[in-house]
Design a protein around this nucleic acid. Sequence first.
DNA 1: AGAAGCGGTGGGAGCGATAACAATTCGGAT
DNA 2: ATCCGAATTGTTATCGCTCCCACCGCTTCT
Lengths: 343, 343
Amino acid sequence: MPAATGGRPPVMADVAKLAGVSAQTVSRVLNDHPNVSVRARDAVLAAITELGYRPNAAARTLVTRRTRTLGVISFDTTLFGPASMLHGIERAAAGEYFVSIASLPALDRAGVLGAVDRLLEQGVDGIIVIAPMKSAVDACGSIRHGVPLVAVGCGTQASLASVAVDNGAGAALATRYLLGLGHKTVHHIAGPRAWLDAQERIAGWRSALREAGAPAPELVAGDWSSASGYRIGQGIGDDLEVTAVLCGNDHMALGLIRALAERGKKVPDDISVVGFDDIPESGYFLPPLTTVRQDFGALGRHALGVLVAMIDGQPAPQACLRVPPQLVDRASAGPPGRAGTPR
Amino acid sequence: MPAATGGRPPVMADVAKLAGVSAQTVSRVLNDHPNVSVRARDAVLAAITELGYRPNAAARTLVTRRTRTLGVISFDTTLFGPASMLHGIERAAAGEYFVSIASLPALDRAGVLGAVDRLLEQGVDGIIVIAPMKSAVDACGSIRHGVPLVAVGCGTQASLASVAVDNGAGAALATRYLLGLGHKTVHHIAGPRAWLDAQERIAGWRSALREAGAPAPELVAGDWSSASGYRIGQGIGDDLEVTAVLCGNDHMALGLIRALAERGKKVPDDISVVGFDDIPESGYFLPPLTTVRQDFGALGRHALGVLVAMIDGQPAPQACLRVPPQLVDRASAGPPGRAGTPR
DNA sequence: AGAAGCGGTGGGAGCGATAACAATTCGGAT
DNA sequence: ATCCGAATTGTTATCGCTCCCACCGCTTCT
């Protein structure tokens, strides 16, 4: 392997000497500046490959004040949604920016602020916060520093640059769909109150119900987990009034279906179930789950787009970019069946 | 807000001036060097908070040659395993190191080498490669640079610093368990050939079979997806010989169970099914899935530990640190039932 | 009493790159 | 032949920090 002087990695001056030009010219070649003769450029390029030269990012950053690094703050990158968004961001950024992640044990104000601080210390050019909870959005709003920052998956109401799936529309879509199948009303297993997605889905569900003149059943809330869906399902399974349930996410739908099955209730014959998210497995549930798809990847890509625009000096949009969700019709929902409501 | 001179962020000299000391002393306070009087330290600390000073990472890196940043290369951070490992790494690194991710569209040699290059350009202190495929491990082996690098989830045979779940032991564990239940043999739906985990599970399964003197059925392989499990299940559902199936992962088990259900086969009465991974949902499948748990989080933490040791100058271990898997007994496996094999 | 040891401190030299500016060359217009 | 301006190249001054070394004032040893 080519070593420059001593064992240390080659620096720009080494390249310059080998190519017979000045360091400045090497810099110009590296940064695609105009006005470099082909002769010089070729010599530099040859020297670079011969030496295995790699520019020192720290030195460059010191003078340009840009790290070409983005920070992503997330709550739990193990969950399907955050993981997908992160992946979408990373894929979209590849080549343009590095992405550094900061995942939090809890999405409270202090946690978010602390993570922003850590990333700032690292010198990121911009930050994307995967902020599904109100506390996180509030924290974002109170950040004083001038860092470009966009929130994603944060509800559609926040007054900061943000990108989110239109949860309200999605829930309404699913609710109308079930109503259209002939159900008198639709029950809803919501996510935790603190989550904006959960709140917006509740609102969408309620408004679709009201619009159709259907009675609004009492709300029950789980915690997104299959376990909570299962627990709630044990109650629902005994309630003869219930013919259709919209679940806050696919995992809870899975738990619900299992609880129903254990009580001898068939889906969709006795009860229709619709999920939310469209995780990769949901097409293979028993029965395959009808659900509302969120395109998390697109969310990530859009968030990156907005952020990069801000980094490049465009003013921060104060509104939310909404990504429309989509109903995926599989087999877990149908007309109120043979075992329909008694009344 | 406290502004130093002009609008620009305060630098060490500003802190020094305000505290009435030299920049050198500020640096000493920041880096916890001994021999700083409490008076000086307090003055510096006060100045720092008053100014809202934040050390410039690039400048520090330029001289120390450490970025306190780690790179993680991964194939698809959307999958449960990689996402969990990444999360484990990140949580374990929090505070000590930043983690920068590079996810690849494909885990081939060129992709891995390219990602290593990108990270090196960024100046990472070390790299963790989530390398479940042979091609990735080979690529790691051929990296000439002196960067500390550890592979994780890469099979247990690689001759480089690595951390992995003992797949062979896990598969053998599950196979013996099924055999112990009274099954004459155990079928296996493997993952793709190119994946080391898949190969090692196959080996573990085969050896447990051999050990017990059980016949080794023909191998079928899926692609980890529920869809492939479903497809394969359509064949298995018609095969009366099959009483027990070990699946390469939980997703394929899910697909298999659905295919079986559609053909009227009951799990575990007609066929026992055991998965691998223990994804959060598998306890809520119908029936709840008996599976082999991999502690991905621990994997990530251990990988970080090994890497940090290497960064701190310890010699790279040439072997694999094995994390033992664990059988989680739920309801999808039982003794060969009333509908047992005809012979 | 002088030398040596020590905690505490500051001064200056880089680290490796880019930006601003200055300098050189060359062709063509005057 | 002289001058001008564009193209190309080099020189110098930072960027913000840490390291090395010298230095101060004291106590402690010989």
